[in-house]
Design a protein around this nucleic acid. Sequence first.
DNA 1: GCCAACGTTGGC
DNA 2: GCCAACGTTGGC
Length: 152
Amino acid sequence: MHYWLMKSEPDTFSIDDLQVRPNQTEHWDGVRNYQARNMMRDEMKLGDLVFFYHSNCDEPGIVGIAKVVKEGYPDFTAFDPDDKHFDPKSNADKPTWIMVDVQFVKKLSRTISLKELKLKTELADLALIRRGNRLSIMPVTEAQWQFILALE
DNA sequence: GCCAACGTTGGC
DNA sequence: GCCAACGTTGGC
């Protein structure tokens, strides 16, 4: 059982969007970073829990929880020339990019903001708040997970 | 294989 | 809108 944090821009896809999807489930397409891809391909397992993080918005922070309901499989948006995330180097026989499906679990009662997370010495090692980090998917230790949940 | 140029991310 | 940080690309 692993814990994760996944970033999404709420203007593009928010926790509310996830909540109203059929089965409250959506595929996490569009990741075009090898490190993030490798985590989805190799380490994300059914039932893993995910902090849903809103980035590039008024109050960046953790807004909810999701869980992994389908393990890594080819990101078909890479095959579609009309898709924003089209990648001509990826094809169905040998897909470069991988995604997982996540399902809504809950919204937090409040946003646990990046600003707040940065103040906690307990979270100094969290990838999210290390300077210059741009990974859209990152691991969270169980201790970090429990600590953050207790902030709600 | 080096590295400059360029594009993207994402906080502010 | 700005810009720092970082990943990728492509010439050599």
